[in-house]
Amino acid sequence: MKLPMQSVFRHIKPGDWLTMCIGCVVVVSLALKLWNGELADKVVIKSQGKLYREVPLSRNQRIEVPGAMGISLVAIENRRVRIASDPGPRQYCVRQGWLKQAGEIALCLPNQVSVELVGNHRRYDSLNY
């Protein structure tokens, strides 16, 4: 007697197994790419050592943050954040670009402004412990 499963497998051709394997690779690589690290929920903006504002990532907006030298402009767009402009001389924090994942941080040292992405629960790193 023949099991129904065997008759199903008979109709799967060699190339079909190849397609399945490629499909598995696609699924696994998507999971690795999109699930590596916690998604960020909100932005913590600090100015001169003090908490300036905590803003959720869900709404696109631009925030002016007063610092030691002048105004730093923080831009939130599509669940990402960056320092759009800063009065500092070397512009390191502006050139850092978009921050996406929880734990990423941009520091504008001369202006004493920092922007950090946090998720639901804060993870330990070399800056916070």
Binding site: C24, L34, N78
Partner: peptide
Amino acid sequence: IPQAGIAYLIPVFAAAALVFGT
């Protein structure tokens, strides 16, 4: 939903596509 939040579900959808497609 023009936001990256949906990206979190893409691997689930892809796995379902593979299983049901087969």
